[in-house]
Nucleic acid binder design. Sequence first.
DNA 1: ATATAGTACTATGCAATACATAGTACTAAG
DNA 2: CTTAGTACTATGTATTGCATAGTACTATAT
Lengths: 115, 115
Amino acid sequence: MNQEINTDNVKAQMRKGILEYSILSILSKGDEYASSLIKILKDASMIVVEGTLYPLLTRQKNQGLLNYRWEESPQGPPRKYYSITDKGREMLSELDVTWKEIIDSIEIIRNTPNQ
Amino acid sequence: MNQEINTDNVKAQMRKGILEYSILSILSKGDEYASSLIKILKDASMIVVEGTLYPLLTRQKNQGLLNYRWEESPQGPPRKYYSITDKGREMLSELDVTWKEIIDSIEIIRNTPNQ
DNA sequence: ATATAGTACTATGCAATACATAGTACTAAG
DNA sequence: CTTAGTACTATGTATTGCATAGTACTATAT
């Protein structure tokens, strides 16, 4: 029980840094609004809550990685559609490398004998 | 320049949660002391500093995942050798699953078209 | 004997971000 | 007008990596 809670906590810590990469990835394939992003992430088993996502999107906007425009929704309040900038695409490419490095590091650590 | 700093920052955030997994992995293969752990991690391109590692080892000890014993060193101060507990091995197995889930999530997010 | 260098461990404040929570606002339906 | 569903804003809390300061042990040099 306590162990399960702890595993969830480790997973939450693992999400730090990863979500920024995930958002840029999704938007590189097309513009989306926040609730849609949450759904896409959830479908990929990456659970994120609004309190996390909105500040993250704001940070990325302020860093010039994203832009947004308002668009009327079919039957609710207007939606804020986010799109990735050229700078965001460059960042995404760098994060591709960074993520690969992380995976390789874990692979080595997990499967190579200590010296 | 500012972008490089930002990538390093993202990588530091990504390390959160991952280091716990890394430490258990290393110790599952044999006992080590802190400076040795730092070297093994560094060799796998996972840079960690003492200010991070020692509190982390202490936390894991307090959670029952590790144990330690003092051992005289060849030519310096005594060393604190850490070993993994059965509980630590169980945790490691769970983190194997957790890590795989994260990788799969990123794979989906990075390579599947949005709906 | 004392100072220095190398090695190893302890303590703590700071920065960053995920999360929980509270709230505002828009639109449609009751 | 009220309620429900949807979408966004704001903020305090918890956690952990990092920077920094310090203590302690052993060997070597002065």
